[in-house]
Nucleic acid binder design. Sequence first.
DNA 1: CTCCAACCGGACCGGGCAGTCCGCTTTGTG
DNA 2: CACAAAGCGGACTGCCCGGTCCGGTTGGAG
Lengths: 181, 181
Amino acid sequence: MTALRADAQRNLGRILEAASDAYAELGPDVTIDEIARRAGVGHGTVCRRFPTKDALRAAVIRARLDELLARARELIEKPDAGAALEEFVWTAAESARRDRALFEGIEQCSSFADVAAAKQELHETVNGLIRRAQQAGAVRDGLDARDVGALVGAAIQASVHAERGDVWRRYVQVVLDGLRA
Amino acid sequence: MTALRADAQRNLGRILEAASDAYAELGPDVTIDEIARRAGVGHGTVCRRFPTKDALRAAVIRARLDELLARARELIEKPDAGAALEEFVWTAAESARRDRALFEGIEQCSSFADVAAAKQELHETVNGLIRRAQQAGAVRDGLDARDVGALVGAAIQASVHAERGDVWRRYVQVVLDGLRA
DNA sequence: CTCCAACCGGACCGGGCAGTCCGCTTTGTG
DNA sequence: CACAAAGCGGACTGCCCGGTCCGGTTGGAG
């Protein structure tokens, strides 16, 4: 696999960005045409770069997972375990808000080995955050990274149809309060 | 509009039940053919009774809303306001669990006047439950029926991909705890 | 500057699904 | 029982969308 030509590289970036925006705005069922239109690129170009619609979604999801993993690794150093987890939850919430497809579609994209691996790694790291917070008495027992991810994703999903733009913060706060010991 | 013939009545019932099951099992994107198959009825029969796929979904949603409204009206008589709201939340959760489409699809089905009206009425009644619970100090301020509905629906949605069958109870419990004052 | 390989984009194809239509069957009433 | 109206169901239609292909274009190495 040789390096992409400059224009191809540029288009690839545009496609990923457009796809991310489109997923956030229109949900996981956006058509390839819509994404191509937003990227200012032909339908065919998208399909050539990503052999399947799911492959595109997987690529977008993977980017988000990598961002979250980096953040989780920073936070695991933080002395206050409860605050660290809380901060991670807020970051994850913003990420989910930016791209609803992240949590909605992650299950079927797990068939892509790299996404599954990234998810696994993220879960292990976040489990570390959770375990520390539990030992500090800040979070109830019997929860793991999967649960927290699902609940945060759900809170964001719940706020999609709200009129006011900051409703999601209140919902995430409800979930955070519910997680406490 | 004269009464339906006996066989038509029977088929109508089967269709609604099959649709409800199918939505619960396969999500809101089930095909009409699948619903017809489950109801043991021809594709055409479904389409004749419900001129549009959305009309069918709206009918199913309306049935659920009516059930919930009846329950809410019972509970508003209950002396312990906090317990009444809590019980309603569990009922709503079970309803959402039985038919995920209820909360996922309710927005676009609001264009059907009867669904919108049923939703409105339910919201007003549930707002009564919430207000009483808030006055009793059992629930935090700044929440209305829409928020509670969204959060409960989200908790159920979040548990869809879990392996263990009782995960949804834990998630609903998290939300309930988060709602407290 | 030349040239070719990489790349682009839109025309095209095929499958799947919502909704329509009509010839046949069932209901129930007189 | 007879018969008209109501209902049934599956064949048919048109549309939408994901994925392919190829003639034309562009980048960048030499």
